[in-house]
Structure formats: structure tokens, C-alpha cells
């Protein structure tokens, strides 16, 4: 099941490609910066204070999570490109267990997502957020956990989708709604019932909540519950990824 050489190969390949393709790096940093500064600053006046923090500070944890979400899913979905451009065949005829390919892909997505996430974390002083030093390592662990779980979703999507036509659709109909409904942009209090239900059903809610706890010091759910939920989410999506990736024909 665990083939270290295969995991390393899948991981190293994605990392090499990431550093070679600078446009991807810049592109995926523009989005969070835009959200943070344009939306954050724009709504700051009318949104007022949320607890002890202003609106820009309030969405800062959400922006960190967003970076992790988009980077990891995008990274996993690259399987579609690998299939389209043929490289996937090369890996699939090799004597390596599919599970190891999935794990390698998950670790690659996690690595890239942590790199991008850390860049955003470095912007904290610009929005006057002070993250306690002791919280940095837990924060990275939480982001890693969230990212690994999300690559699982990305792999399932990639395994189910036969071509890249659906790529934009997936982004617009799955990832964006999940992020909007994660409580990253508004406090999950006094919401209409339907919205509250959707927010609470969304696995990202608990990831964002835990990130908020570590960055801003407050959360809407118990951090322990958040953490347990994230671990369960990771296990579940990885299992799903292995299942669907195994079943597909290429």
C-alpha cells in the first residue's frame, strides 16, 4: 500500500513544476490579496467592529484558509491535465499501488498549500493582526490537515470528470459555494435558518473556525470539536479519493 518511492516521485514532480511555473504562484496570490485588501478594506467601514476586531481582521483567517483551499484543490485537480496530456498513463502502468499515488498527490497539494498559506500569514502585520508565536506551529498543522483533506475532494472530482470542460464548473459550483458558506466572510451568528444549516453542514466551516481561533483568538465552535472534525474529514476524503481513483479507467 505504501510505496515511498512512488509517493516521493509524485510529490517531487508537483513541487518541481510549481517552482518552475512562476505564473501559477503569482496568480494564486493575487486572489487572496485582492479579497483581503479590496473587499476587506472596502467593507470595513460599513461592517463595523466584529467583537474586538475590524472587518479586515475578521476575514484574515478566512483568507488564509481560502489560499489553502484553492491551492490544494487546484493541485489535486491537475490529475485531469495529467490524464489529458498523457502522463497519467505512465504512472498508472507502473508497478505502484494507487493508494500511494493518492497519498503523494495529497502531500504535494499540502506542501504547495502551506507555502502559499505561509506567504499570506506573513501579511498579518499589514492588517494589524498579531499571531501568538506559540500558535504558529498548530496553525501550520491545521492548514496541513485541511489541505490534505481537500486534495482528497480534488482527486475525487478529477477521477469522476472525464475532461477539463467541467473544471470551471467545479470551481464555480463546488469550491466557491463551500468557501462562501464557511463563515469566512461573515460571523456565523444570527443567520437565517437555511443559511445556518448550510454553514454547519460545510466541512470547511470547522477548518476556518479553527484557523480563526489560532489567528484571532476566538471561535464559534469548540476547537477540540473542530480538530476532531478535520481529522475525520481528512480520513474520509482520502478514503473516497482512493476508492474513486482505483475504480476509474484510463
Amino acid at each position: 500500500m505504501i510505496d515511498l518511492a512512488c509517493i516521493r516521485m509524485v510529490w517531487e514532480r508537483d513541487v518541481i513544476r510549481y517552482f518552475r511555473e512562476k505564473s501559477q504562484l503569482y496568480g494564486s496570490l493575487t486572489r487572496p490579496v485582492l479579497w483581503l485588501f479590496v473587499l476587506g478594506m472596502g467593507l470595513r467601514g460599513s461592517a463595523g467592529q466584529i467583537g474586538d476586531v475590524n472587518y479586515t481582521q475578521f476575514i484574515f483567517p478566512g483568507i488564509i484558509a481560502m489560499t489553502a483551499i484553492f491551492t490544494s484543490i487546484q493541485s489535486a485537480i491537475s490529475i485531469i491535465w495529467d490524464r489529458e496530456f498523457g502522463f497519467l498513463k505512465e504512472i498508472l502502468v507502473a508497478p505502484v499501488p494507487r493508494t500511494s499515488i493518492v497519498i503523494g498527490k495529497g502531500l504535494a497539494g499540502t506542501t504547495l498549500s502551506l507555502i502559499q498559506g505561509c506567504i499570506i500569514i506573513l501579511l498579518a502585520p499589514l492588517v494589524h493582526v498579531r499571531i501568538a508565536l506559540a500558535n504558529i506551529v498548530p496553525l501550520i498543522i491545521v492548514l496541513a490537515l485541511l489541505s490534505f483533506g481537500l486534495t482528497g475532494i480534488g482527486i475525487v472530482i478529477a477521477a469522476r470528470m472525464t475532461s477539463f470542460q467541467g473544471f470551471g464548473t467545479i470551481m464555480n459550483f463546488i469550491i466557491m459555494p463551500m468557501w462562501f458558506l464557511s463563515g469566512a466572510l461573515f460571523p456565523a451568528k444570527n443567520l437565517p435558518i437555511w443559511l445556518n444549516v448550510l454553514v454547519r453542514l460545510n466541512p470547511l466551516t470547522y477548518g476556518v473556525d479553527l484557523v480563526r481561533k489560532l489567528v484571532l483568538g476566538f471561535s464559534y465552535h469548540s476547537p477540540v470539536f473542530d480538530f476532531v472534525f478535520l481529522v475525520g474529514f481528512g480520513v474520509l476524503t482520502t478514503a473516497a479519493a482512493v476508492f474513486f481513483f482505483n475504480r476509474g479507467e484510463y
Partner: peptide, 23 residues
């Protein structure tokens, strides 16, 4: 394979090195 199966964002040597790794 009949149609392309190389990773064209990698170098020739990297393509071979990764092949050697998984085999």
C-alpha cells in the same frame, strides 16, 4: 504508448529519473 505520455514541463533527464524511481 502511441500518444504522448511525457511530462513536458520536466526536462528529459527528470522524466527518465522519475521513471527509474517508480520502477
Amino acid at each position: 504508448f502511441q500518444d504522448a505520455s511525457l511530462d513536458d514541463r520536466l526536462t528529459a533527464r527528470e522524466n527518465l529519473r522519475f521513471h527509474a524511481m517508480i520502477y
